[in-house]
Design a protein around this nucleic acid. Structure first.
Length: 481
RNA sequence: CGGGCUGUGGCGCAGUUUGGCAGCGCACCUGCUUUGGGAGCAGGGGGUCGCCGGUUCAAAUCCGGCCAGCCCGACCA
């Protein structure tokens, strides 16, 4: 596989690109801006996917699938929506050797086609709520791309719901944002800030956009999931109407919400180190790798391999995702480095010395080096490893949380914020008067944008960091991906 | 789309200044010895030098054009 990666401190961008490729998460494809997700990266995505999918279903959503190709005219119905997406649309103009009468867009998101269908399906308040999710791919013609973080085509899920009332729809929006926050925090071990987007940052066509924002290792913010309250905007233009309980015609209130393979990039950037990936156990394709240390003596070798197989079976029986690396063509030292590159949370080494003492040597990925290795008795090893995996999960979260706190600032003045942003990035909590002008001023001066207006607000938001007028909210400024 | 860098076996590069047999390291294949932190030795396979054109006896090398990728900015999950 691979040797070393560019050190994180030397060049974070290159470090990220190196790690993604050398850990075999993804590779560049022949098509500009698009990527191939390799089996190891896809396994990671599948774990994220199944965690989310489970939470969606627990909250009453059903999966469905809508087509990739959307009539251009559908996209044009909602004015803000088309304006927002027009620059990044990919168009299909020919099919079957002929020019199409109407161009088709490759979906950048599916609000329009889904709502066109909702209009057919929703007639009565008894049809509501409609709670639908779709797993699929979308295409947005991006100028600058980065593996997982921004590619022309990416995988995601998009939820689309319709409700009788605004309050019900708004509650749905918040519920789904909470699910994204749980995914980030409980599964990906990444603390996030929950909040609302400013007018400038919100989804094209939404009334309100909510998002979770996480802090990456280079102190830049990453939007890790969004949830939109769409109001009746789409319902009106797609003529979705239902008869309410008073026999009156109404437009439903709607939501949409999405999270993408970007979450894979987030996990890489939050936890990785100079040895490569560091994966939170709950989303890691393999939670444990067993590496037998077998010398040439045939009998000894057979005994070690057999014992390693038993350890593997015992862990698997305990529900742990475990892999036995019994390759003979590479040395144990090579395997250690390779699995560290791939971020496997726990490694078990088993050699003749261990067999003699009925033990195995266990190493944690989040505590690199030989020093942190410890020996566990083979008896009851599955339980001990289970416990260690939980500790690793928690330790990764606590470390990321400490990093986020260290890099969250409450600048006393605009000058201070500008200096801090130029030096080191991070989250900057500051008052904002609510004007787009001040938002733009900050962006022009510092490249930082309002990432979120957090739900958690202080009693008094103080004064606007840019204009010093009384603030309406405390917001989080940061440079973002 | 602007600025910068780079295109030479799978990967990383040298060779380009001064035109003259296409090389090195890693990876790959075979064999033997190895195996507790990226093994050793021996043998072997693999490249129309990004593409098109020009100059020349001769082009990876000089000239013109084009294309692609990466990094930095404006747009975005």
């Amino acid at each position: 596989m691979a040797e070393k990666v560019t050190p994180r401190s030397e060049d974070y961008s290159r470090w990220y690109t190196d790690v993604v490729q050398r850990a075999e998460l993804a590779d560049y494809s022949p098509v500009r801006g698009s990527m191939v997700i390799r089996p190891y990266g896809y396994a990671l995505w599948e774990n994220i996917q199944s965690a989310l999918d489970g939470m969606f279903k627990e909250t009453g959503h059903q999966n469905a699938y809508f087509p990739l190709l959307i009539p251009l005219s559908f996209m044009q119905r909602e004015a803000e929506h088309v304006e927002g997406f027009a620059p990044e649309l990919a168009l299909v103009t020919h099919g079957g050797g002929k020019e199409l009468e109407e161009p088709l867009v490759i979906r950048p998101t599916s609000e329009t086609i889904i709502n066109a269908m909702f209009a057919k399906w929703i007639k009565s308040y008894r049809d509501l709520p409609v709670l639908i999710n779709q797993w699929g791919n979308v295409v947005r013609w991006e100028m600058r791309t980065r593996l997982f973080l921004r590619t022309t085509e990416f995988l995601w899920q998009e939820g689309h719901t319709a409700h009788e009332t605004e309050s019900e729809a708004r509650a749905e929006t918040r519920q789904m944002l909470d699910i994204y926050a749980r995914l980030a925090e409980e599964w990906a071990a990444t603390p996030v800030i929950r909040g609302r987007k400013s007018e400038a940052e919100k989804f094209a066509g939404a009334v309100d956009t909510y998002a979770i924002e996480a802090l990456m290792g280079d102190r830049k913010a990453l939007q890790a999931g969004t949830s939109h309250y769409l109001g009746q905007n789409f319902a009106k233009v797609f003529e979705i109407e239902f008869l309410d309980r008073n026999n009156e015609l109404q437009h439903p209130h709607q939501t949409s919400w999405g999270a993408s393979t970007r979450l894979v990039g987030m996990a890489v950037m939050v936890h990785g180190d100079d040895q490569g990936l560091v994966l939170p156990p709950r989303i890691a394709p393999h939670e444990v790798v067993v590496v037998p240390i077998a010398r040439s003596d045939a009998a000894e070798r057979a005994a070690v391999i057999e014992a390693a197989g038993r350890v593997r079976d015992e862990l698997a029986a305990a529900g742990i995702r475990v892999v036995l690396d019994d390759r003979e063509e590479v040395t144990p030292g090579f395997k250690f480095n390779e699995w560290e590159m791939k971020g496997v949370p726990v490694r078990i080494e088993l050699g003749p010395r261990d067999l003699a003492e009925a033990q195995a040597v266990v190493a944690r990925r989040d505590q690199p080096g030989k020093e942190s290795k410890q020996a566990f008795p083979l008896t009851g090893i599955a339980g001990a490893v289970r416990e260690m995996l939980d500790e690793v999960q928690e330790a990764l979260y606590q470390r990321a949380l400490a990093f986020q706190k260290e890099n969250s600032h409450h600048p006393a003045s605009y000058e201070e914020m500008k200096d801090l942003l130029a030096e080191s990035g991070g989250f900057h909590y500051a008052g904002w008067c609510g004007s787009a002008t001040c938002e733009q001023t900050v962006k022009a001066d510092t490249q930082a944008t309002i990432r979120v207006i957090p739900f958690d607000q202080p009693d008094n938001p103080g004064r606007c960091i840019a204009c010093d007028e009384p603030a309406t909210d405390e917001v989080v400024f940061a440079k973002a991906y």
